[in-house]
Design a binder for these strands. Structure first.
Length: 685
DNA sequence: AATATCCGTATTTTT
DNA sequence: TACGGATATT
């Protein structure tokens, strides 16, 4: 095979034999099993560079990653090897983003208009709820599954390609009796989406797959790529695997990279079967294993390996560290959450003074709100931080309001957006909003000279509404009419003229939230079209506050706070894992069966393996129930079951019961509590 | 009588 | 933040 020697040597100089073999593999299917910290990103980036170097046109390479950030990082690294201009031509992004890109162009072949809007998770749930109410399932005396559950069931059914009855039996047994009602809702849900030209996340994949089964388009799309590379393959689902198989029907060049020990997205219907069955699905696949860990020092890796060795399902690899270092991970037992927050802050500062910048340190936790108290303490001490995961910017009600205006303008058939906007008006509840919508949708007037689009109708026709809303209705009319003629940035500005007064009345802390609207306006200004702005925001929402703030914050040093899920693929010199108590890790929402618990174990493993040099695991003994201020009701926690006595032996143990760290406790209260805590520790093992 | 709004309580992870 | 139930408003 021809390729230019000098560049290749540069590309490969820094790779170990396994990494080298993976990145220079020729034609055909390739499976790379890459353990945590084994240089997966480097290898994949090198492979992209190698392919380009070997003469594959970059625009004929498709790189599917878990987030856009991941794609960017890989392409930046590839760019360092073969030049930025070349690497930037590679098709990179998530399955969903790539599907969107393809469907905007080729969607007509499967009956989609180019101006479809994309529903995010909560939009989808809202639509479910609408149907749930309409079909009278909300009022039945027996409790019918809630909107989020309905959305989850629907999504799992679609993504696993398994019959609803079976999905219910396996994953939602407590809902099995409601299958009839669900069928009705799901049918209506699909119908509504088609009528309104809206797609949910799952539709993006489904229609991509449909494109690949449409006669001529199929060859066009599959044929426009010479190589397909997929990162984090352990977290893809059956539908995504179907898409890949269809993409590579005739050209077998596919590379997938993943680690079955890091599969943490089964709640999204991801299945490790994809990785395990890859050699069967793509016969003749070469398999390369990366097992040399370059990230963590040996004592850190020892803990991680020990945690995994106790898993139900065994993994046939054990990572070997290439880095020496003596300090063992620390297991820090704290009195309660308050003290935990203080100790974490203390440690962070200690490391900072020792020369490790804040952004080389991260605090990881199972769920978004686990960092609440810590955030308060960090703020109090003026330690800057950025939080990833948890509640996102885009989920905030006021942001959704503003996006709903934009969606109406982009796709007037989008009833969900209308529904939301109309209810912002005084005296307009669900009922009136529905009435107005019915008028706007009306009879699709054949031969009448009524305009067809609900937006046109709204702009020129009078609608029945409660008197209190009449004036605002007029203002809305004007706002939409004006905004229609403007670009994204000015559009938001004009709509804010209408929305800001309502917003200030509806939300009590409007002062803080107005910043978000300003940022939204600024961000919109950077886009050429509202369509791009909207889809980018739903398919790749800003994952942290800093993503939005832009450059000013980037210069500064700040601590990273992240859910473990969002920490996937990242690494830090110092990692603090907080709330290592049973019920938090594993979450008691996920201890139903052995498989769920195994996934929680892998999650803990992912958290531990993010650390390079220092690993601190914190365990607060005492948990308060509900009201923190008044009531003293609390209970004692157990250390996470994943730190067994054997694993515990690999930690340096520390107990922090220092009274000065616990301001709210007086000596008389805390002394017996401390004794109890110590006693409780004795039963813990 | 119908519907909007208010209030207290409970919250997993994300494309 | 979202739900259910109680209360307020038209």
């Amino acid at each position: 095979m021809f390729y230019s020697e000098p560049v290749s040597r540069l590309v490969l100089a820094d790779l170990n034999p396994a990494q080298h073999r993976a990145s220079t593999y020729g034609e055909g299917p390739l499976l790379v099993i890459a353990g945590a910290g084994t240089g997966k990103t480097k290898t994949l980036a090198a492979r992209v560079a190698y392919l380009i170097d070997r003469g594959v046109p970059p625009e004929r390479i498709l790189l599917l990653t878990f987030s856009r950030r991941a794609a960017q990082e890989m392409l930046t690294r590839a760019g360092q090897l073969v030049g930025r201009g070349q690497a930037s031509k590679v098709w990179g992004g998530t399955f969903h983003a790539v599907a969107n890109r393809l469907l905007r162009v080729h969607g007509h072949a499967v009956g989609l208009p180019p101006n479809f809007t994309v529903l995010d998770q909560s939009d989808a749930a809202d639509l479910m709820n609408l149907l749930r109410t309409e079909l009278g399932l909300a009022e039945t005396s027996r409790r019918f599954p809630k909107k989020d559950t309905l959305a989850a069931i629907y999504s799992r059914t679609v993504n696993t390609n398994v019959k609803l009855s079976q999905v219910l039996e396996v994953a939602f047994p407590w809902c099995a009796d409601d299958i009839e009602g669900m069928r009705g809702i799901f049918q209506g849900y699909v119908k509504r989406k088609r009528e309104q030209a809206v797609l949910d996340y799952d539709d993006l994949l489904l229609f991509w797959k449909a494109l690949l089964h449409a006669p001529t388009i199929s060859d066009l799309i599959a044929g426009s790529f010479d190589h397909v590379l997929v990162d984090e393959y352990q977290d893809t689902n059956a539908l995504q695997a179907d898409v890949l198989v269809a993409m590579r029907r005739s050209i077998g060049n596919i590379t997938v990279v993943g680690d079955d020990a890091q599969a943490i997205y089964s709640f999204r219907a991801a299945t490790v079967r994809n990785i395990l069955a890859f050699p069967q699905q793509f016969p003749g696949a070469e398999i390369v294993k990366l097992e040399q860990n370059y990230r963590s020092i040996a004592p850190v890796l020892a803990v991680a390996n020990a945690v995994m060795s106790e898993a139900h399902q065994q993994y046939d690899k054990e990572l070997r560290s290439r880095r020496t270092g003596e300090q063992r991970p620390r297991l820090v037992t704290c009195l309660d959450e308050t003290q935990q927050a203080q100790v974490v802050c203390d440690r962070v500062i200690q490391h900072l003074e020792q020369g490790i910048a804040l952004n080389r340190q991260a605090v990881l936790f199972r769920t978004g709100h686990h960092s609440d108290l810590l955030e308060v303490e960090l703020t109090r001490r003026n330690i800057p931080f950025v939080k990833y995961g948890g509640l996102k910017f885009i989920e905030a009600a006021h942001v959704k309001d503003m996006l709903a205006f934009l969606r109406i303008l982009e796709n007037p058939a989008d009833d969900l957006a209308w529904f939301r906007v109309l209810q912002l008006l005084d005296g307009m509840g669900p009922r009136h909003a529905q009435t107005v919508l019915d008028q706007l949708r009306g009879q699709q007037g054949l031969g009448e000279d009524r305009p067809n689009s609900p937006l046109e109708r709204f702009l020129v026709e009078r609608v029945d509404a409660p008197p209190a809303a009449a004036e605002q209705l007029d203002e809305l009319r004007h706002a939409l009419r004006d905004a229609r003629a403007l670009g994204p940035g000015q559009r938001v500005e004009r709509l804010r003229h209408f929305y800001d007064p309502i917003f200030e009345r509806v939300y009590d802390n409007a002062g803080v939230r107005v910043r978000d609207l300003e940022q939204l306006e600024q961000l919109a200004g950077t886009y050429a079209t509202t369509r791009e702005f909207l889809t980018d925001l739903t398919l790749d929402p800003p994952s942290s506050t800093s993503d939005l703030a832009g450059s000013p914050l980037l210069e500064e040093d700040y601590l990273i706070l992240s859910t473990i899920h969002s920490a996937k693929g990242c690494e830090w010199d110092v990692v603090h894992v907080i709330h290592a108590a049973d019920g938090n890790i594993p979450s008691d929402m996920a201890t139903g069966n052995a498989e769920e618990i195994d996934e929680e174990r892998r999650l803990f493993y992912v958290a531990l393996t993010r650390a390079k040099d220092w690993l601190h695991v914190y365990f607060p003994l005492r948990y308060y129930h509900r009201r923190r201020g008044r009531s003293d009701a609390h209970s004692y926690a157990q250390l996470t079951r994943f730190i067994s006595p054997r694993v515990k032996g690999l930690f340096d143990l520390e107990a922090v019961y220092d009274e000065q760290h616990s301001p709210e406790s007086t000596a008389s209260v805390s002394a017996p509590v401390t004794v109890d805590a110590l006693l409780n520790e004795l039963w813990a093992d």
